[in-house]
Computed example of a mutant assay.
Amino acid sequence: MTSSSASSVSEVEDPIGAELDAEISSLKSQISTLKSQRALQARHILSSHTTHAILSRLRASKPAPPSSSSNPTSSGPPDVSPLLQTSSQQLAHNQENLYRACASITTFPIQDPDPNAVDHGKVLGIRIDVSSLGRFARPYYVMLNKPCVGEDVLRVHRHTIPPCIPVAALAARYLPIAKGAGEEGGAKGARKQNLGKFIRALRREIVAYHNRTTVIKSLRRDFKLDEDREKRGKGKGKEKEKIIADISAADAEAKQVRIEWVDGKIGRCVVGESGMVEKCVVIGEQGRDWEVERRILGGDKGDASMRGIGERLREGIY
């Protein structure tokens, strides 16, 4: 009797506890959002040139500190130096972000400490900045040197580019080095190198890779694939039926996306350099699902962008 009554009480309390947990989670989310908005508004106010000018005038017009003979209880104007320092730091941060956004490719010289390094250790460093979801990713670096004496021929010395980016293929295309370069007459007739095209093509590959991985992450978030089952069950009200079991990259470059449905269908999409879905195959128990393939490839709207896959997958289901 005691065990049955305790189990019945726990069954009654479970829905109430789940509802309270959901409300607490919602309140915590609202508090976090409000704190982020407050910090954003404070940064906007402090980074304003008008605010900086007002704080500078207030500090300039501040009277000298009172002597020891004066009334110690008299209160003067507040010290605005901390606010002015924070405003200057925010302005410098905004300027840095603006520079990284507009001048996403920068060069700088490097001195190789190795005494036996080619070209007396002179290395050309190139920094590539990429932003994703409103944030700057860790910069990528490419270091070039001149292996041939007396020749303005560059080669990739070191780099921090992900392995999925074809750095060697791009270097062979835009920075070709002829056999026997540096020897007398060895480089005659060789194709000219184009450092500008090499860096632009390399950055284009990096940006496309980040865009594809970002879209995959956003799709997983939209379909709540990374949430625990317990968190899904604590939500209030009826949720939409889950139709997608998994969305992931099928290769290292994220040019192929694998989609797995709850009912067992498996699809694979090929994404081009422009971010459009070029090919798609969906196979289920009854063979190929032409309707879902047509929907993913844009359907009647003709929009086959990778970012719109989530909306197109929901068409005809919800």
Results as ranks from 00 to 15, higher is better:
I206T: 01
I206C: 01
I206R: 02
V207R: 01
V207W: 05
Y209G: 07
Y209V: 03
Y209M: 04
Y209H: 15
H210E: 12
H210K: 08
H210C: 04
H210Y: 15
N211W: 10
R212Q: 07
R212N: 06
R212G: 00
T214P: 03
T214F: 01
V215Y: 02
V215I: 07
I216T: 09
I216H: 02
I216Q: 04
K217R: 07
K217T: 12
S218N: 11
S218L: 14
S218G: 11
R220K: 14
R220D: 06
D222P: 07
D222K: 05
D222A: 07
D222F: 11
F223R: 04
F223T: 00
F223I: 11
K224T: 10
K224V: 08
L225N: 11
L225T: 13
L225H: 09
D226G: 08
D226E: 14
D226K: 13
E227G: 02
E227T: 05
E227H: 02
E227C: 06
D228W: 03
D228L: 08
R229V: 06
R229L: 15
R229N: 12
E230D: 05
E230N: 11
E230K: 13
E230H: 09
K231F: 07
K231H: 03
R232E: 10
R232W: 08
R232T: 06
G233S: 15
G233W: 05
G233E: 12
G233V: 01
G233C: 15
K234R: 11
K234S: 00
K234T: 00
G235H: 07
G235N: 07
G235V: 08
G235Y: 09
G235F: 10
